[in-house]
């Protein structure tokens, strides 16, 4: 069980929206993590420095928060390395194939009223719900 946290979640979400706005209005870039990550791993000339800067700020802030509020990080739900590898491969392949994840499609794309992002968001939410339902009914780790 996890506790319902509407206020903390809304405030955290508002900061994510603020970050996406800073990056868009300031630099003209879309704050999609899978895109920023993918473009860093497979770099293109002249389109890499801003990604590295973003990820540096992202990781440094993560380290700072893990010191100040360690309880905001939860443990992985599976200890099985096989399941972790499978899930990681699906997330990596799916986000590159579908050009975005929860941030790029679910926040930035929906805020632009993009039909592609609406379709992608509905599909990954639906696929995620069906997967959790099946996984938990089949007795997988909660």
């Amino acid at each position: 069980m996890t506790t319902f946290t509407p206020l903390a979640s809304a405030v955290g979400g508002a900061l994510i929206g603020l970050s996406a706005s800073i990056l868009l209005v300031g630099s003209g870039k879309i704050a999609g993590i899978s895109g920023i990550f993918g473009g860093t791993l497979v770099p293109k000339t002249g389109d890499t420095a801003w990604r590295v800067s973003f990820l540096a700020g992202f990781l440094l802030a993560g380290l700072a928060v893990s010191r100040a509020l360690p309880q905001s990080f939860g443990a992985p739900v599976t200890r099985s390395l096989g399941v972790a590898v499978l899930a990681g491969a699906l997330v990596g392949a799916g986000t590159q194939m579908g050009n975005g994840c929860t941030s790029g499609h679910g926040v930035c794309g929906l805020s632009r009223f993009s039909m592609r992002s609406l379709a992608a968001t509905l599909v990954f939410l639906g696929a995620g719900m069906i997967t959790v339902l099946a996984w938990r009914r089949l007795g997988g780790a909660p």
């Binding site: 699906l90 799916g94 986000t95 194939m97 579908g98 379709a119 995620g128």
Partner: peptide, 16 residues
């Protein structure tokens, strides 16, 4: 692509 991502997201609880 979105469906493949959703399955991985559901399995692990992790998006990128």
């Amino acid at each position: 692509g979105a469906a493949i991502f959703g399955i991985g997201w559901g399995l692990s609880g992790y998006c990128p």
